[in-house]
Design a protein around this nucleic acid. Structure first.
Lengths: 235, 235
DNA sequence: TAGAATAGCGAGCGCTCGCTCGGTTGGTAA
DNA sequence: TTACCAACCGAGCGAGCGCTCGCTATTCTA
């Protein structure tokens, strides 16, 4: 998968290696949840799912998921109230689909890009880049998870915390392996570094309005972040 | 004000220099908004305001401000529905009090600590420390602004964006002045540094659950952040 | 092309929301 | 002791919520 990508680290090259993109993700979503979606015909379901998800991101970005009523969603998608309920079991269920999909598919996809890289420095840089590019591609998804899960059920909250802890630990472990190998400064707290990297990644997809205004691209941001982390860990 | 604090940079010393703290802030709030609060007797108003604000933070932290009903707030404070409306003009107005108070008072207070420091390096370090300590002291206030404003009126959203931009620019300017003076690496984008520092500060008050679990104090976090920024800007 | 199956529709249900307003309470001044 | 009024109370209002269900429209099968 990533045999060629590291040699061209642009987001464009990255997108070509992804198993799904901003459009085809709705087909993947349909297959992941076809058992709990009442509509079985793919040609009918996938475009409607795309309408529903896009409208959900748009409306809950405007105010919040809780403030979005299913009547708003019906109006925005052009699908009737009854029609919506052929795709979701409840309003909570809609949020759960988004979160569960990310929990499984996004996390696995990201991991595939870095798992075969052994060298800690390359692996750290690649991880940062992949996470930022994923945040760029699926910005509404990540923002949704960050902003909305806390309003949800205990189960959903725990899932979100779990995802974040998993990510922090992934970065912490890369840093630790680099420290053991002597590449990175062993006096820096690896856990704090992991936490800070996650903060930087979240900063990218949460504050995209500001970066867009200032003409900072995802590639620029990844370069900056990698540089900052590299300097922090230099011996 | 800060003639002695810089020589003892603990949060304890910082708290003693603050014009208000987690308790007395409600008296300050009362005086700031006495014109739009119907209850005029301070001895009645201040304790009730404290109950209302604390309960608002507690309830909107549990789910969200929008999901908090005024009946919830009434139950949690022990103040009747009608009683609440002697303190707030509307539910929106309650959020506006919180946001407006921070916009004016918090920002000014923070600025007073650093304005008389000229040396860019000291000023940068002091600023980071003050912002993190403020975030620690008034964590529910900052978290509220970060998480809830986007659900509010356009005016309130603009106010929140304005606060953030002002803070980013403050950090950007300190970095630039250090670059012009030759203290900091001039090749690092000062705007990006400012943005990253804000991200680190927000990371502190948004993820306090994780830092508490790992025994990281506000002072530890400030030290780490200052170290990271210093290394990034080193020539 | 008839009949069955799937997809889509929207008025209406029970309920909770933000907010109001006429009434009650309790401390203070005359 | 009485009269007053700031402070507080909570049942009730109209609107809008999530969700349902009897129905129609569309597509597939034979």
């Amino acid at each position: 998968m990533s045999e060629s990508w590291p040699h061209n680290s642009s987001i464009h090259a990255f997108k070509q290696k992804m198993p799904f993109n901003q459009s085809s993700i709705y087909r993947a979503l349909f297959h992941a949840f076809s058992s709990r979606i009442q509509v079985q015909r793919e040609d009918a379901a996938v475009p409607n799912l795309e309408k529903i998800l896009r409208a959900t991101f748009r409306l809950s970005g405007r105010h919040s998921f809780e403030a979005m009523s299913l009547r708003d969603l019906s109006r925005e998608t052009g699908i009737s109230m009854g029609g919506l309920y052929n795709y979701i079991g409840s309003k909570d269920d809609l949020a759960d689909m988004i979160e569960s999909f990310m929990d499984v598919h996004m996390a696995n996809t990201g991991r595939q890009f870095v798992n075969q890289i052994q060298d800690p420095r390359s692996r750290l840089e690649m991880s940062i880049r992949v996470y930022i590019y994923m945040g760029e591609m699926f910005q509404p998804w990540y923002q949704f998870i960050f902003m909305e899960t806390r309003s949800m059920t205990r189960r959903q909250k725990e899932m979100a915390k779990g995802m974040e802890i998993r990510d922090v630990n992934m970065f912490r472990e890369v840093v630790e392996s680099g420290q053991q190998q002597g590449t990175f400064d062993p006096l820096i707290d690896a856990g704090m570094v992991g936490s800070s990297i996650i903060a930087m990644i979240q900063n990218w997809y949460l504050k995209n309005w500001r970066f867009a205004k200032e003409g900072v691209s995802a590639g620029d941001y990844a370069d900056f972040t990698i540089r900052a982390v590299t300097k922090l860990l230099a011996r």
